[in-house]
Design a binder for these strands. Structure first.
Lengths: 139, 139
DNA sequence: CATAAACTATACTTAATCGGTATTGTTTTA
DNA sequence: TAAAACAATACCGATTAAGTATAGTTTATG
């Protein structure tokens, strides 16, 4: 019931990229040092984010990373799922056979957990990085 | 971001106890076999639930378990927290030093995660075992 | 066109957590 | 006082998380 360390790093890396000027790109090393994220681990995380289109990577000399879309179009859920995969709060919501193995073919627990899971997903989807930027300015 | 197996078992064990007649008590072995939960693991889980007052245990011959309060007074959150401890979705919401270590003294990520965490806790608190009982009858 | 600066891919390692078990002890009824 | 139940604690193996290493690819630039 806790987010991965990688997801936490990802949130902070994407926030960092959200604060760049349009067109600006930065090397992973800069993010790593500024946010205190182990470089090689960050590179791995950035690859997941790139695969999801959240960041765009530029190879070669002068390369680095920038956001792949506008901060307003990136939610916490997007980043979370890019790193951890789809939000799932219980095994019975992943593997349909799981509940049957437990001999509870009509399981009300399963039912309410599915509803809670949906609410949680919506909650993470409510916040985008434009909002987080705004929030930074206030401090 | 996923519930423990132990919590899943706990939900099903408490639901099982919710369906008993008032005054009825059952041995762990009965719950174990009916719900396909490894007995010794279940005993451990039941101890956590007993500590939290969710179930009441009876030692000695003819002993066993019963609910410690009315099903309507036991929420999913109660059971979840009895087994896993308080709901925490990020380390920075456990250890106040954590964020500072990350060199982000005014971190908007921390801020919104705290809000999301609260919503999640409320969501698990919305469902009690009387409701789950009702839901069973419908099937 | 070669070099070096960046990212990519994949595999490996270490540590923590999870899921479960074992052992020994205590309580209680018959 | 024996046996049926739970209690407490410690242990174990497997999985996952977190991070590192190695080898490779892309690209700007001198």
């Amino acid at each position: 019931m806790i987010l991965n360390q990688a997801t936490d790093y990802a949130f902070r890396a994407v926030l960092y990229l959200s604060l760049l000027q349009p067109g600006e790109i930065v090397e992973a090393k800069v993010i790593s040092e500024s946010q205190h994220i182990p470089l090689r681990f960050l590179l791995k995380i950035l690859r997941s984010l790139a695969k999801a289109g959240i960041v765009k990577s530029y190879q070669g000399v002068g390369g680095g990373y920038a956001l792949g879309k506008k901060p307003a179009d990136i939610t916490l859920k997007d980043v979370l799922e890019a790193v951890e995969g789809p939000i799932r709060i219980n095994k019975c919501l992943i593997d349909p056979d799981y509940c049957n193995k437990q001999a509870t073919p009509h399981c009300p627990v399963h039912y309410v957990l599915a509803s809670i899971q949906q609410t949680i997903a919506q909650e993470f989807d409510k916040y985008n990085f434009e909002q987080l930027k705004e929030h930074m300015k206030q401090n």
